[in-house]
């Protein structure tokens, strides 16, 4: 019984070892296909993180013409809070702004030494309500604030939001299209490898069939061979993307991320990692069953 279960694995593994170059080429092509898809997934995850973060934390900074006194400030604050979509209003005094700037410059803070305390303008930081997140509404709010005579300048990351959204859309499109093509190619490559193995063993397979081997017995080793190739390809894809991620992506993406105040650059969550490997196995299985469809159907 144990033999019946382990047999296809033993045979599948033996097949692999008997054609190492071919198998390796197959594994590599699966790895390339899955790796590219996984790479796009990493970019997508991080792009979406940026977009999402921005969406959850839309702030507008209104730089004020003059520094308000306490009563003015209270008045303005309540007035702005009454505007649709404004969730919170925080005041930053010129001194505070200077302190923040100093902190950001850290070691080079001495550059600011000669400057007057009110060198930087006072500002109101408006937090936009969570249910007020589409760009049209935000634009309308921004328009009202800009027309306010007390506001000297208004800053918010509208363009960023749009660019990031556009970027994630492009990543999805390119990654998806390329992915479908590459995955189909990988299936065909597996099918071809298995077909070659089948061809080189057609005598053996025929003899085995003639002495009573069931189709199941004949086919499963090749299905397993395809699955092993696919699984190896999946693992290799994941490993290469992880390596690329550690060496290149983290460094580059983290610049962008720290600019936007987002914590970490993300790798694929474990569910996705499992999915990459499972996809490899499924690709291999698909490819080999493709090749086996015509076996024994002379």
């Amino acid at each position: 019984m144990i033999r019946t279960v382990s047999y296809p694995f033993v045979r599948g593994w033996r097949n692999l070892r008997q054609t190492p170059v071919l198998s390796l080429a197959t594994i590599l092509s699966i790895a390339v296909a899955l790796g590219i898809v996984a790479l796009f997934a990493v970019l997508l995850i991080n792009g979406q993180q940026v977009a999402e973060r921005w969406r959850q934390d839309v702030r507008m900074v209104a730089y004020l013409q003059q520094v308000p006194d306490a009563t003015e400030l209270d008045l303005w604050r309540t007035e702005m809070l009454r505007l649709p979509g404004v969730a919170a209003v925080d005041y930053t005094s010129p001194a505070q702004a200077m302190n923040d700037f100093r902190a950001r410059l850290s070691r080079r803070a001495d550059l600011l030494d000669g400057l007057p305390e009110d060198f930087l303008p006072a500002s109101l930081v408006l937090k936009v309500a969570a249910d007020f997140k589409n760009t049209d509404e935000i634009d309308a709010l921004a328009g009202r604030l800009r027309n306010d005579p007390r506001v000297a300048d208004l800053r918010y990351g509208r363009q960023w939001l749009e660019r990031v959204s556009a970027l994630t859309a492009v990543i999805k499109l390119v990654g998806g299209t390329l992915g479908v093509f590459l995955l189909c190619a990988a299936v065909l490559i597996v099918a071809n490898t298995i077909r070659l193995t089948l061809y080189s063993r057609r005598d053996e397979l025929e003899i085995m069939a003639l002495v009573g081997a069931s189709p199941y017995y004949l086919k499963t080793p090749y299905l397993v061979e395809g699955m092993i190739q696919g699984g190896c390809g999946g693992v290799l894809a994941l490993a290469s993307v992880a390596l690329l991620f550690q060496t290149v992506l983290v460094a580059n993406l983290s610049i962008l991320h720290s600019l936007l105040g987002i914590g970490e650059v993300l790798f694929l969550p474990w569910q996705w990692q499992v999915m990459v490997m499972v996809s490899g196995v499924v690709l291999g299985l698909l490819g080999s069953s493709f090749a086996l469809r015509r076996l024994l159907r002379k």
Binding site: A213, S214, Y217
Partner: peptide
């Protein structure tokens, strides 16, 4: 093919 293999 399956029945055939059993017969063989």
């Amino acid at each position: 093919e399956r029945r055939l293999s059993l017969l063989r």
